[in-house]
Structures are given as C-alpha cells and as structure tokens.
Amino acid sequence: MATGSDSTFDIRPMDQFIISPLFSEGELNWYTFTNQSLWMLVGLIGIILLFVFGIRKGDVVPGRIQSIAEVIYVFVHKMVIDIAGQEGLKYFPYIFTLFLLILFGNVLGLLPYSFTFTSHIAVTGILALLVFISVTVLGFVKNGLKFLGLFWISSAPLALRPVLLIIEVISYFVRPVSHSIRLAGNMMAGHAVIKVFAGFAGVMGLGAIAPILAIVAVYGLEMLVVVIQAYVFTILTCVYLNDALHPGH
C-alpha cells in the first residue's frame, strides 16, 4: 500500500464531469450522443417508469410506487397553488417538468459511475434562462407596462424609490445567474468532494476507513442536498411566476 507518492496520489475530482461521445470517437457535434445524453435518457426512462407505469392502475388506495408518484405530484401541485395562486396552475405542467427533470438528474447523479447532467452550468443555465425569459414575457403579456411596477416599489418612500429601482432591476437580472449557478454549484461541489475523499481512500491503506466514513457522511448529506436543490429551483420558479402574475405584490 503506497502512501501518497506522486505516482499513485492522483485525484481528478473534475474528470467525472467531462462530456464525451458514447458511440463515436473524436469530434463532438451538436447531435452526438454523449454520456450526458445517456443519463438524460435514463432520467426520462425513470420518470416514465415512476409516473406512467407507477400510476397506471390508478388505485383508490395507492400501492408503494403509486404513493411515491402521487406524493411528488401533489407536493409540486400544492407548491404552485400556495405560491403562485390558482392562476399559476395553468403553468403547473411546465413547473412539474422542471422539478422532475432536476430531481431525476440530481438523484441519478448520486449513483456511482453515473453522470450528473444538472452539474453543468450549460444545462442549469438554459433551464434558468427559459424560466427567466418565459416569466418576463408572461409578465408583460399579462400586465402590460404595469409589470414594470415590479421595480417601482410604491410602498416605499418616494425618495427611496429610484435607489430601490436600481437594486430591483439588478436583482431581477441576476435571477437567472443565481438560479442556475446555485443548482450546478451544489451538484458539482458535492460530487467533487466525494471524489476527493475517494481519492484519499485509494492511497491510505487501512487508514482508508476514515475517508470512507467521510464519504458515507457526505453521501448522506448529498441525498438531502439533491432533493432540496430540486425543490429550491422549483420554488424559485414559482416565486418568479408569481411576480409575473401579480407584480403589485
């Protein structure tokens, strides 16, 4: 058992995030099927298994799988109503899609040797931008120019309003950035930490028990983070949607 010589102590925690083509060599074209695409497909299959085959029978007293699917469905459904109101329900399919996509991406990413597509800023950035653009367009379509009232806080003293305007505009345009980096950062950090500990375990011989215990702990924490981040992304989407539907607060 070697202990940390340069030749064996070679941790590459970021290698797990490399996107590589699965069935071809070399060039990565826009249509190339990659390890990332594969895990998106696995996510889609998982969603279909849980939400199509799981609830196929539609029992009045649900079984295990159906219960899981129903709990998730009702949870998001209730979240949309609670935050965006009844008008928000019209956009529930899209929000539910986002939630499932992120949830399955995050959870599947915890499997060893899997690929976490939600750890890529390109993926979360597009998701966040889609939310940002659609919510902004929706705000103008629903409220016209009144949507700009979101930045002009009429409840604040008049002297403060221009300052608040600047702050509100900046925070509004920072939304997609924080929205996407929060998710990707969390996913990346957790996986990188696990990989680093795993690298330690590989070179420590019997002492590896310590990093292995650490991996178990971090993994448990990640199980939590993975679900919470999907929840946070979705709930923020609901909040933004509520801003677009009711800009007057």
Partner: peptide
C-alpha cells in the same frame, strides 16, 4: 450539444407529463 440534448429531454419529459401523467393522475 448540451443544449440540444437538454431541449430534447425537456420536451420529452413535458410531453410525457402533459399527455401521459397528468390526465391519469
């Protein structure tokens, strides 16, 4: 590449939810 597959995946999940999941649920 990422954008393309993400959009494909997103649309697929959306269609599955809209067509298969929501009516049944």
């Amino acid at each position: 590449n990422q954008s393309f597959w993400l959009v494909v995946f997103l649309v697929a999940v959306f269609v599955v939810i809209k067509v298969l999941v929501m009516p049944r649920m």
